[in-house]
Design a protein around this nucleic acid. Structure first.
Lengths: 112, 112
DNA sequence: CTCCCCTGTCAGACTTGCCTGACAGGGGGT
DNA sequence: ACCCCCTGTCAGGCAAGTCTGACAGGGGAG
């Protein structure tokens, strides 16, 4: 999935997911080291529910993947790791992506 | 300014500016052709004030540049054109950008 | 039992972004 | 005078994102 030209909507989702200082820090931390949620919350010094929200967005965008590991004793810990990706961003890529946006053309048909 | 590694904050601003279907379409249209605002509003079929807002964001992010051209007769028209750029987006770039975010470190000093 | 650590989810407050209609003003044609 | 086209800005409504404290529950160690 790395290096592929994303559709317009996918691009928007990806950029939206990345356009946040918190999520950038989360991604950076998770790319360096596979940790579990609570530990990550301590490292980054942010509320756990907040971290949860951001993690969900990152996961929805396919940038991180979570794995709930249940130890033999029954205690569970959720590990999170970054998913490698690559996107080249320039005017051409944008012009290309803008062509296939849901409801892009001047005559956008209503669908709702 | 193309190809340079942006600081964390700049990256966030850039991504935020691009994470919008409207702005993507605007950029694409403006990259293809140097037009003026009202004409662009007609092409993209969006309210002029709305277009203005998005143009301001794009301009603030340095993605487009506007030029108010006043004809000899006094009538003025604002031309807008895209500013070329290139950003390689991957985990390394993000890890790098996350290092220099205002108030990044675990011990974020209060400043407000 | 009590204390600690973990996961998940919630309602509510707050902030930000998005979008619209309306306005003021400059200038040109008929 | 009237109508048309352009630029620029505004208040106000609406939707979405952000953040917090609190809760329920599972499990382990003293």
């Amino acid at each position: 999935m790395s290096g592929t030209s994303p559709t317009g909507d996918e691009l928007v989702s990806l950029l939206a997911a990345l356009a946040s200082p918190h999520r950038l820090r989360i991604l950076a931390a998770v790319a360096r080291q596979r940790t579990y949620v609570s530990e990550l919350a301590r490292q980054l010094q942010m509320n756990r529910p907040l971290l949860y929200m951001h993690l969900q967005k990152l996961e929805a965008a396919g940038l991180v993947s979570g794995e709930l590991v249940t130890a033999p004793d029954g205690s569970s810990v959720k590990y999170v790791q970054a998913v490698p990706f690559t996107v080249a961003l320039d005017l051409d890529a944008i012009a290309l992506a803008a062509q296939n946006l849901t409801g892009s053309g001047p005559a956008a048909e209503q669908e709702k």
